[in-house]
Design a protein around this nucleic acid. Sequence first.
DNA 1: AAGATTTTCAACGCGGTGTCAAAAGCCAAA
DNA 2: TTTGGCTTTTGACACCGCGTTGAAAATCTT
Lengths: 208, 208
Amino acid sequence: MSAIRSRRAPTKGDQREQALVDAARAVFRDKPISQVTIDELAGAAGITRSGFYFYFESKQALLAALVDQGIAEADLEMAEWLASDGLDRDALRRSLAAGLARWKVDGRWLREAFLAPDPGPDVMQVRDRLVDKGCTLFSTRIQRDARAGLTVGGPPALLARMAVNLRSTMFAEVYADPAAFDEDEVLDTLTDAILRLVYGVSPAPTPR
Amino acid sequence: MSAIRSRRAPTKGDQREQALVDAARAVFRDKPISQVTIDELAGAAGITRSGFYFYFESKQALLAALVDQGIAEADLEMAEWLASDGLDRDALRRSLAAGLARWKVDGRWLREAFLAPDPGPDVMQVRDRLVDKGCTLFSTRIQRDARAGLTVGGPPALLARMAVNLRSTMFAEVYADPAAFDEDEVLDTLTDAILRLVYGVSPAPTPR
DNA sequence: AAGATTTTCAACGCGGTGTCAAAAGCCAAA
DNA sequence: TTTGGCTTTTGACACCGCGTTGAAAATCTT
């Protein structure tokens, strides 16, 4: 990938590389990734098609880099909830809301990265790393609550995975067809769903 | 699609068409659909590449036909649970088990059909039809139970969608990496998860 | 057996991919 | 300033898979 080449200085080339990632983020918003041509990506970053290959070996590799940069953002989103304890409904809802907001903007490539069947080896690697990380964090939070006697039981790793999957798929659906959903309703229901999934109960929503 | 042409007799051509669908089902088991070439599909059905276009206009169209034939099977799977009432844990678990068994075999194209971001317009149409149907059936069952005071509340349509998504994504994950999961554990947890999602509680599992 | 219809195939052009070797730009040491 | 070694950029090329076309072959009608 790019990690091998890019050592030392922020040379001209590194800027271009970043420009490509940024360009991709923008271009991927407009049309299905499978329909985006390398020529297009290169053009958006101001270089020719064959120049592209100097920086990435394929469209997938570029997508992988893009996803890789998304880690930090995703971490921030769930941070509040992960740091809290027990059934902090409001914290969870806020975290979910942040996630949905991001999906509404970058849903196209998020979907490709996290839901697509075979996004190529490059993306796969990054995807697995990210998903594992997210699930692990969630899972340890569940275990912590389990020790406090708050949860309803069940294997924490699986429950975490289900919660994460539930989250992404619903976000993806909202992205795909925003008109079909009432966002607040989705967030409320999703919050309750996750709480019930893990703790068996969902506290009465605080009046909004 | 194919519906226009195929009226009347099961002519030679109709057999070939079915042969293509069957061939596809088999070929799709072996490798990612995006890597399957039309030439390969045609060859597996005993015709040349250009012959393929006499029957389907694209790989996606063929996939759509394949998915279309899968309706009946999917319906059978969930029939028992949908016909039952309230928290029939065993019925739900059996229905889920049947689904998982099918995904373990045909997960490749099921995933492509139900989880892929943009599987082309042909598949999209069939997919939406099927998903809607599944969600609606589930949703009416929830409403029925809601009237009986069994559920915990929340918009039935959304809950149904979540349950269906939860199901497919977990099945997909098991298909993708069977070694990483204990099937029984997945089924138990998934059963409880859905029950908690809709009814707020999951009854103690009947001893196995 | 003649015509009409259905099915098969070989050949073509198109568009996107990935590779390569040569050219151009850059920078630092002599 | 010139030189030599790097990084970056480019145009040309071969390849592969797609979808079309038009005509030949097989099959079905009477």
